[in-house]
Design a protein around this nucleic acid. Structure first.
Lengths: 217, 217, 217, 217
DNA sequence: GATGAATGAGGCTTCATTCAT
DNA sequence: CATGAATGAAGCCTCATTCAT
């Protein structure tokens, strides 16, 4: 995608071009995000995406290999944001259970209300589309789960806790992600109870903390 | 559409017809289930479904209004089975926390390994297809959640437990469903670790029980 | 369509059967008439016709060769009624211009308000469907035109009138039918001005009479 | 759908594109016209139309929303031509009865022999197809009738003529259109007597003139 | 780089007709 | 005679993708 011809310092106009390119790319991605979230992946045609992004279909194909690529890039981006968001909290907590508390809070009280479209794409539109997309989805979900698992392991080490089984940490991590997913789906996508997200988040976090504790011997 | 002429007892041949009708219906539904689970809802064409069911396309349309109807019927059927499965355990436990233990066990150790295709359809293929399907999905998920919530309420009454907030029971129910969903997705659809489902289930159940307990004051 | 086996006097039950047959035939035809007029020939499916007639599809095919046959029979029937209606007036008038006056009156003031569905089928639904239907339509229209032409010829003989050209009578007859057609279409099907049909009819008749007179040398 | 970016003068290549677009549009419309007239609206499949126009099916759908749109555009175009044709004569005659004479002449002696396919579409194929097409047809027919009515009103004013009733002018206009329609149908579509159209036209015109005169008090 | 007209495979769906019971 | 389930050809239309300008 990036050409590697000129090894000399890039000229001013080249820089500007580079900037414009990046902008276009983001504009198209943004358009796709909105349409996928609202109309659904299949109903959102490439033409409509191009229309919303105010470019031609050809241009969309210049920046993205195909329609699949669009959702895959979107998936990657959202996954990245999500990991950043939650990961930061785990790190800050440095092995204490507080990390899980905070991560939950950030997810429910900040991420969800702020990026409902990303939630819809990450948990709804990207599901069951094609094997290629599904492969990506799996990878990203696995990374998120691994992050949580790592935090759990760190906690167990720091606090000398032993889990019930060798799989416990992974199962717990998966469980937490599943909770995040369905609660967001339920209270954000299906019902719109953004206002209650503080209480919902608190309950969810308490559930998680309790669940984690019970898996410790 | 159905005529109500004959109020006399149906003849033998009429009964056989009725039976054959029901069989055809189930055959087609089964074919759709298999193809949806393996190829995905979109890739599975009506023609292929008809082929697998060994009938003509027209016949599929004689029994089902359209392709959407197929997945909606499937959704209903799976939802019904799932509720039966889990509901029975909640009832047997009659308000003790044991119901949640058993329900989890039944889901992970019996339902999942036995009906991986139903899991795939329920949690993957039916997601994000069309507003009509989504509406049905919402209804069915809500019923499942309501079942779990009822069990929680019953438990709280029986055992004089008070939950953290008025939403707690619902959030917990949603959390539990989310755990079921993602764990099944992760260990059944993405990885195939049917063999470990006993341990996985145990860990999940422990997480749930711990979670519930922590939401009680 | 009618079997000619028994040459002996028909039994009572045979007579009843015959009667029932005729009734069924008319019931189906009536159902088709209503549906063709309201839904249009193409949108009206054989199944719907059977439903309305309260018989099975198979039965419809027992009485009528195919869907085309239905509209052809309908066309014949309506054409027959129309000829009877108008023809009677021409005959009564016995060669005077009064026959045209009366025929117009009967058409606009009696036939149209009474049988709007027949008008719709005769002038709208039967047009441009298939070559076979069109052939029938042509034949029936030609008969109607021939009737009017005959009346014109009779008048010319009786009153010693000579028309402008050898085609005049036919052209006039065609013109009159065209007027009937479009006026009925306009004021009955497109607008519903049944109430004004008396005035409309009077104006139309005056136009016809004036037209005829002007073609006489 | 159309973007309004460039307010500068269109380039040469842009102009050529525009021209080619228009040509393609007309080519497809022409192909549809021919097939509708010969095979009938229903038998003419979109694929066949695309074949005859030497484009792909997709291209047909690029220029026309759907099959209905094709016949509606055709209807509009033919209606426009017809109005231009006849309207010019009414105007030239400036309120004298001669306008009706000339309009009839133009229709029968020029339009009919020259555009038999348009006649077939306008008076046969567009009838009774769908409510949307019918609505358009009604509108176009009403405009034609209104044109004739206007000419009649102008004549009545210019020459101090008073009609029999307030509806007379409209009924006469409708009658004239009906005559045009059925005579064209009869002698052009059903029989092919293009050679006699001069006489036929003369007779028809005489009928019209006589009819009009008789409606004046 | 950008455009947008063109493609065409492939999907869903309808419905007249048949035929075993 | 009547039934109605079954057929399958055929039609309309969508839309991701390409490519000449």
């Amino acid at each position: 995608m990036t050409k590697e011809k000129q090894k000399t310092a890039p000229s001013k106009s080249a820089l500007r071009r580079q900037r414009e390119r990046e902008q276009r790319y983001q504009t198209i991605l943004k358009a796709a995000e909105g349409l996928f979230a609202v109309d659904g992946y299949h109903k959102a045609s490439m033409e409509k995406i191009a229309d919303v992004a105010e470019v031609s279909v050809g241009t969309v194909y210049f920046y993205f290999k195909n329609k699949e690529d669009l959702i895959v890039q979107l998936l990657d981006k959202i996954g990245f944001q999500l990991r950043n968001c939650l990961g930061a909290e785990y790190k800050k907590a440095a092995g204490s259970i507080d990390g899980f508390r905070r991560a939950g809070q950030v997810f429910f009280e900040e991420f969800c209300p702020r990026y409902p479209e990303k939630i819809a794409i990450f948990f709804r539109e990207s599901a069951g589309q094609s094997s290629h997309v599904e492969k990506h989805r799996k990878k990203i979900f696995n990374r998120l789960i691994a992050d949580i698992e790592d935090a759990l392991q760190l906690m167990s080490e720091k606090q000398g806790i032993v889990f019930q089984s060798s799989l416990s940490a992974q199962v717990m991590a998966t469980s937490i992600l599943g909770m995040f997913e369905r609660i967001a789906y339920q209270y954000l996508i299906w019902q719109d109870r953004s206002d209650d997200f503080e209480i919902i988040g608190k309950d969810a976090v308490a559930f998680i903390v309790g669940g984690i504790n019970s898996l410790c011997r």
